[in-house]
C-alpha cells in the first residue's frame, strides 16, 4: 500500500523562481524539500505558506511517489517544474545535477510508488 506523500511548493514573490519548503525554510532545490507523509501536517504547512504573502506566490501541495526509494513528483508537470525546461538542461535547478535530478529526469508518465521512501526527510 502506498503512502500519500506530499511536498509543499510555491514561487518566490520577488524573484519568481520555484521554491520548496525545506527543513531550513524555503529552498530553490527540490532535493531539499521536506516530504510530508502526514496530511494534517502538510495542510498546516500550506496554511502557513498562504499567510506568507510578502514572500511567496501561489503555494500548493504536490503529490510525490517513492520510486526506487526516491521521492518523485507523480505528475510530469511537477517534475518539469522542479527541474527546469527540458529543452535547456543547463537552466533551472536541474543544472546542478545529482541523484534526485537524474531520478526526476528518468521518470515517465504518472510516477507510481515502488516501495517505501529510503530517505529520512519525512514529516
Amino acid at each position: 500500500m502506498s503512502e500519500a506523500l506530499k511536498v509543499l511548493t510555491a514561487n518566490d514573490l520577488a524573484g519568481g523562481q520555484v521554491v520548496f519548503l525545506s527543513e531550513a525554510g524555503w529552498s530553490d532545490r527540490y532535493a531539499d524539500a521536506v516530504i510530508f507523509d502526514d496530511a494534517a501536517a502538510a495542510d498546516a504547512a500550506l496554511e502557513a505558506a498562504r499567510a506568507a504573502t510578502l514572500t511567496l506566490a501561489d503555494p500548493y501541495l504536490i503529490d510525490v511517489a517513492a520510486v526506487d526509494g526516491l521521492p518523485v513528483p507523480t505528475s510530469y508537470r511537477e517534475r518539469i517544474r522542479a527541474l527546469g525546461p527540458t529543452i535547456h538542461p543547463d537552466m533551472g535547478p536541474q543544472a546542478d545535477g545529482g541523484v534526485l535530478v537524474h531520478a526526476l529526469q528518468q521518470a515517465r508518465g504518472a510516477a507510481r510508488s515502488s516501495g517505501r521512501l529510503g530517505l529520512i526527510r519525512r514529516k
Binding site: 514561487n11 520555484v18 517544474r81
Partner: peptide, 17 residues
C-alpha cells in the same frame, strides 16, 4: 495584483515570471 501585472504583460509562469 495579478490582473494589474497581467495588464502590463507580466505572467507568473512555470519556472519564473
Amino acid at each position: 495584483f495579478k490582473p494589474l501585472r497581467l495588464m502590463n504583460g507580466l505572467y507568473l509562469q512555470l519556472h519564473s515570471y
